[in-house]
């Protein structure tokens, strides 16, 4: 059994600093195992958030050597030799030690207009497999908010938080926008309220997603292209006029309120 040194950020809104802990490590251990050992032996007041230990609850997201990772899924033996640096997610306000206040995300979640299906036909709603598969990828999100943490639009520019939903909610918007039963036209909303144009597709959200959701390619860029359909494509505008497809005009179809 060898040893490992963890440099852990200790502090709260009043300030903080790194504190080093050297402890034993075993083969196959993940960072959360070592943190629990530190709590059990050296620092019982060390605050961290965790729950499932299986990479499915998204609770234990922190920054490991400067990159967002789930502590329960990051094996020690995959990290470079030397001390491991642990800091709270930078984008969100600190509560204590490794625990951050992620309520920004819940505010953004409330802003997402709900699914608005058409009146129920006599035979009931029907969904087909090819349409289900399309949005299934987005349903894998475990809401660890590491994509939100890594997104430089809010990570480096706090002022953008008011008008920017972030990658996690772009996949939610995409899921609903691509839903065959949703009658809401969300293109104006994602452009004006959710700040889709702020994203400059640097793909950091895709790189960090523990569920390997292709956030940029399958959600953000398709949403951007739909906004182009509605606002920047005169050929599409002409086609709508000729075919009298007023529903697909974002300016004509407002997002409806949630029930």
């Amino acid at each position: 059994m060898s040893e490992i040194t963890m440099r852990v950020w200790r502090g709260d809104a009043n300030g903080g600093d790194f504190e080093s802990y050297t402890t034993e490590r075993s083969d196959g251990e993940v960072i959360l195992d070592v943190i629990h050992r530190i709590q059990a032996t050296e620092a019982p007041d060390l605050a961290c958030r965790w729950n499932c230990k299986a990479g499915k609850c998204g609770s234990c997201a922190v920054e490991v050597n400067g990159k967002p990772r789930l502590m329960c899924m990051t094996r020690i033996d995959t990290l470079p030799e030397g001390p491991v640096t642990l800091t709270p997610m930078k984008t969100f306000p600190i509560i204590r030690d490794l625990v951050t206040d992620v309520s920004f995300n819940y505010v953004q979640a409330k802003k997402v207009p709900a699914l608005l299906p058409p009146p129920m036909p006599a035979e009931g709603y029907r969904m087909f497999q090819e349409d289900v598969e399309r949005s299934q990828e987005f349903r894998k999100c475990i809401e660890c908010f590491m994509c939100q943490d890594v997104c430089h639009v809010i990570r480096d520019h706090e002022e953008n938080k008011e008008n920017y939903a972030g990658p996690r909610f772009f996949i939610r918007h995409a899921e609903l926008e691509m839903h065959p039963l949703d009658t809401n036209d969300r293109r104006d909303f994602v452009r004006e309220e959710a700040g889709l144009g702020m994203c400059n597709i640097t793909k950091c959200c895709t790189e960090v997603c523990p569920e390997h959701i292709k956030i940029t390619d399958n959600a953000i860029i398709p949403l951007k292209e739909r906004v182009v359909d509605a606002h920047y494509d005169p050929v599409a505008w002409l086609g709508r006029k000729i075919l009298r497809k007023t529903k697909t005009s974002a300016t004509d179809a407002a997002v409806q309120p949630a029930p």
């Binding site: 950020w9 502090g11 809104a13 009043n14 903080g16 790194f18 920054e63 050597n65 400067g66 990159k67 470079p80 030397g82 640096t85 800091t87 709270p88 997610m89 930078k90 984008t91 969100f92 306000p93 600190i94 030690d97 490794l98 951050t100 206040d101 309520s103 920004f104 505010v107 953004q108 409330k110 802003k111 997402v112 207009p113 709900a114 706090e158 002022e159 938080k161 008011e162 104006d188 909303f189 004006e192 309220e193 407002a254 997002v255 409806q256 309120p257 949630a258």
Partner: peptide, 27 residues
């Protein structure tokens, strides 16, 4: 355009970690 909920984002919370450009150690 009708917003669903008028929840406000609170800006300016104190962030944790050191005030450096990055803690990444890789190249």
């Amino acid at each position: 355009m009708t917003a669903v909920h008028e929840s406000k984002v609170q800006l300016g919370g104190v962030r944790g970690g050191p005030d450096v450009a990055t803690l990444r150690q890789d190249r």
